[in-house]
Amino acid sequence: MADTAVLPAHRAGRETALRPRRRRRGRLTPLLYVLPALVFYAAFVIVPWLHSLWISLWEWNGIGVATWAGLANYIEVFADPALRSSLLHAFGFIVFYSVLPIGIGLVLAALVAATPWKAMPLIRTILFLPQVLPLVAVGVIWKWIYSADGPLGLDSSWLGDFTLAYPAVGLVGTWVSTGLCFLLLLSGIGKIEPSLYEAAKVEGCGPIREFWHVTVPGLRKEIAVAATVTVIAALASFDVVYVMTGGGPGYTTMVPGVQIYQLVFTAGRVGTACALATVLSLLTCAVMYGLNRLTRER
């Protein structure tokens, strides 16, 4: 408003009357566009999140009288070996939900892009199918596959074995995520400048060096998207573990999702559950931040 003072008086009068209003409208208009989404986001994400943050400071069974707990629930999350190990298991799932699917997806996408097949739509559908199935159905199917009466003809169920149960559950995650990663990366390959491949050929690059020096760097953005989606799925995993093992045998496949569910619905320790959920969501945000920093284009 200071600049209006140097203008000639007759113009200044008109300007001061109009400008602030126009300027304010200009500032508010974008807000108006995002408002509907913002309202829903606030009502269904931010407010519940704050609410659960608040509950995490109490000792409460979900119904009765709550008593102030301060940070005791948070101390428990890190002190109780069962809760701590469930967090570690979730991070271990990143290997099965993200690293393996992106690796396999990259190789498959590069192979398919190099040799276009007629059966392509069919292959795409088959690979993407696990993504369409409800995860509970996926869990039930794989529970049967891993059982002693399953098609693998195993001599005893893998899900009851202390060493095999965790990778067995993890591989289901790989099976589910691979199709999504493959499709994402395949569509990304189509956008890579063909001249880069030609240049690589002229320079005498073999298919493997071409893959490392052209395809992978060209897919940086798609890899970032795939990693974001699958890492969140890994950290928030619930359905598959709940249906297949319920966290067992022992606590070998326990993940925060199942732990939170048990804490709320069977143990009636809503405060501790909310503390674990808050820790999990903060860790997830931290991982996402790190991932964005890593994959950001320089």
Partner: peptide, 19 residues
């Protein structure tokens, strides 16, 4: 207790599994 079933599940699994 409210959590005893979960505890007995994990603990008997560990006992049978030799853990």
């Amino acid at each position: 207790t409210a959590t005893m079933n979960d505890k007995l599940t994990a603990a008997t699994q560990e006992l049978i599994g030799g853990k």
